[in-house]
Design a protein around this nucleic acid. Sequence first.
DNA 1: GCAAACCGCGCG
DNA 2: AAAGCGCGCGGTTTGC
Length: 569
Amino acid sequence: MRAAAVEAAPAWTIRAGSEVVDLDADGTVLGRAAWNPADVAGAVSSRPDTRWVWADTAAVYPEFLAAGTRVDRAWDLRLSRRILRLSPLVDAAARLAAPDVWDRAAEPMPVSDALFALTDGPVLGVDDLVAELSRQRALTDGAADAARLRLLLHAESAGALIAAEMHAAGLPWDRAAHERILVEVLGARAASGAPPEKMQQLAAVVRAALGDPAASLDSPPKLLRSLHRVGVMVASTSRWELAEQQHPVVEPLLEYKKMARLLSANGWGWLDEWVRDGRFRPVYIPAGVVTGRWASNGGGALQIPRQLRPAMRADPGWVIVDADVAQLEPRVLAGMSRDARMATAARGLDLYEGIVATGAVATREEAKYAVLGAMYGATSGDSGRLVPRLRRAFPAAMALVDDAARIGEEAGAVSTWLGRGSPPPEDAWLALQSLSTEEGTDAAVSERARRSARDRGRFTRNYIVQGTAAEWALCWLAEIRHRLSQLPAVVDAPTADRSGPAFARRAHLVFFLHDEVIVHAPAAQAEQVAAIVVEAATAAGRRMFGTFPIDFPLDVAVSPAGGAVTADG
DNA sequence: GCAAACCGCGCG
DNA sequence: AAAGCGCGCGGTTTGC
């Protein structure tokens, strides 16, 4: 018999509404308590080894951060539920069939300062969470590969913690540096409403080339008509098509479009709206993309142009540690297919050069287009023509993506390496497919059905690779977070107040973009942090692929500002 | 008059 | 030497 329940340390702690419930490792309730908002730090520190459980990290965890504390481990019931519903590792009969109160509340909820998610939609009581955790643990423990599924759910939940923490910490952003770039590229800011100086001048040049001083440059249909009038017979105004034309309007117009994009997407208005106190605080949405990738909401965090990277600037005495994985997706493909030849080609920093060395293709560029074509399902163009060569060189890897495409075309489901299942086809898709098999079907309908099937095949082909890459990245992030938390805090950091949460007094994650992380670190810890990021990549590879010899090399740059040039061009 | 749909382009 | 995947956003046009 174990000791009295009240004295046992909880393994799980559920937080909902105004209550906290502690559970032991078996899920037996150890005790219930009222939640005390005045002592969040005490609630955390008195349960050093627990895993915190809640319905929605984005709704609950900001209160912890605002109170100056963090948690080591979490279980996000909403994110886990979405995975368990579709995972092929879970017995199909045990998966949920009908939507219920959880699903109505299960729209991706952004991480934000407001706690509106708590009052939006159906309210879940703490007993609902106790029951849901029990159900999810049973599904996970009984899964075809429990360890693998558990890794995915833990990584997913760790990602949710990190998303909230990165929002709270903010990305160090130098308004003056950003404005210098704007002025250099666009010219001085003009009176309100008017475009900046250089843009006005360039617009005049474009209009002169169009022979129309009143030509509209910002409306694609009008611009298209203007182009046709001067003999530029393009079908659209997109850049790649214009670039093929020989006409004096092309060069200034492309330049103008670049400027207009910078102004509207990341101009002074963006700075005013998104940068406060030297921090850009985007809203991250973990698993906001169907493959498991993160999405973002507001501020275009995942689309910051490289042009503006130098505006990312560390605080005085701190540095930016910027790391990205070289060719993450093909490496992940080699790992999941156990393709030893591809893994050999991936040894070293440049997988594309490794492929050239096998003799499959002649140049690095060819290798790149062949690999992209293989993962995206290219059928034509230079990329499509190169794919068969890859199929001969790496049959195991190619069989995996080719099978995924075939399954998708046949309305089937595919899965990532850790068990995130792809969504089923939509009803309209199924209806079109069955319509095309009926007798006497119109040829046009059959063609639409075939195209729609191939579209889905390209989706499932890419799903397994993109989704597994997202899983690798979650493991990497979680490892980095854990290792950074072991570093000593810099108590007298000059920016401790400005950075807000207490965890920001030590090196902390401030940005994540699919295969790249940025850590804001005290300069004295720069080398330690760089080593942590590299070790975490190795650890993530082991967690995902065990002893299979696939490398995940990084480009790492340490500097006061973003956009630093790394050794690998 | 408002919202959905479309375009074009930024990111991986 | 592409036109194959996944996104968000601002601006304009289109549809009700």
